[in-house]
Computed example of a mutant assay.
Amino acid sequence: MTTQREIAEQLGLPVHPPKVEVFDLVANTNTDPKGHVRTVTHYAREPFGLYLARPMPGHPRIAAFESWLLPRLGLRVTRWYWHPGHEDDVDFYLDVADVEPGERQWRTVDHYLDIVVRDGRAAELLDVDEFVIAVRAELLDPETAERAMRRACAAVDGLARHGYDLPKWLRANGIELSWRGQPVQDPVPDQRTLPPSR
């Protein structure tokens, strides 16, 4: 019998095991899904998640990025910094993932679904086809797949209810993010916030 994975490969459709990343707070590194170890410029922990910033050496379009890992929401929220002339109409990129906190290391397991946020305008759910193929190929078990879809739907719904304003939606969830060079406005009461990274 031909498996779904073999069918996907025959059709040239993207199918791969869930991408795993490791964030080592002691070594100041980020091991990407391909096993490349990258130096992290800045890590900071908050009660709701982990912040990191690092350059993207050698990338043709992206110079650097900042991410927040948010375990409770099952999201990684990223802002990219583009090389001049390569800008894209993306304000935030959300990866749906299991986020596993730790004292020395954090770990994420990506669940294929992504959301592009265009501030104040739209949120677009991406890679549903890849998600479906992964589920059919049994790369995600039914419980994990359902959890991922629920997280993606909750994020898109929450963003829509808050006018596609990501900080406003997160604030309603008791989360106040701080980004490099961007002051925090209207912080959540009693919520410690990070100063911009240097």
Rank of each mutant, 00 (worst) to 15 (best):
T2C: 03
Q4N: 14
R5M: 02
I7P: 02
E9V: 05
G12A: 09
G12W: 08
V15F: 01
H16T: 08
P18N: 14
F23H: 15
D24H: 10
L25H: 06
V26T: 12
N28P: 00
N28I: 01
T29P: 07
T29V: 10
T31E: 15
T31A: 12
D32R: 06
K34E: 10
G35Q: 11
R38P: 01
T39P: 01
T41K: 15
H42L: 07
A44V: 12
P47T: 05
F48H: 10
F48P: 02
L52M: 13
A53Q: 11
P57V: 03
G58M: 09
I62G: 04
A63C: 06
F65P: 00
W68P: 06
L69A: 08
L69P: 07
L70E: 11
L70C: 14
L70T: 13
P71A: 08
P71N: 07
G74R: 02
G74N: 02
T78E: 05
Y81V: 00
W82D: 10
W82A: 10
G85K: 07
H86I: 01
E87F: 01
D88G: 02
D89P: 02
D89Q: 13
D89N: 13
V90A: 04
V90W: 07
L94I: 12
D95I: 03
D95Y: 03
A97W: 01
D98W: 01
V99T: 00
E100L: 13
P101F: 04
Q105K: 15
Q105V: 14
T108H: 06
H111K: 05
Y112V: 03
D114T: 09
D114G: 08
D114E: 14
R121E: 14
A122E: 14
A123Q: 05
L125A: 04
L125V: 05
L126C: 07
D127C: 03
D127K: 05
V128R: 09
E130V: 04
F131P: 06
I133P: 01
A134Q: 05
A137S: 08
L139S: 03
L140A: 02
L140R: 02
E143P: 00
R147H: 06
R150S: 02
C153I: 07
C153L: 11
D157K: 07
G158Y: 12
L159T: 01
L159Y: 04
A160G: 08
R161N: 06
H162P: 06
D165H: 15
L170G: 06
A172T: 04
N173D: 11
N173I: 00
G174R: 14
L177Q: 14
L177E: 11
R180I: 00
R180A: 11
R180K: 14
G181I: 06
Q182P: 00
P183Q: 02
P183A: 05
Q185C: 01
Q185W: 02
D186N: 15
D186K: 11
P187V: 11
P189F: 10
D190Q: 12
R192G: 05
T193G: 09
P195Y: 03
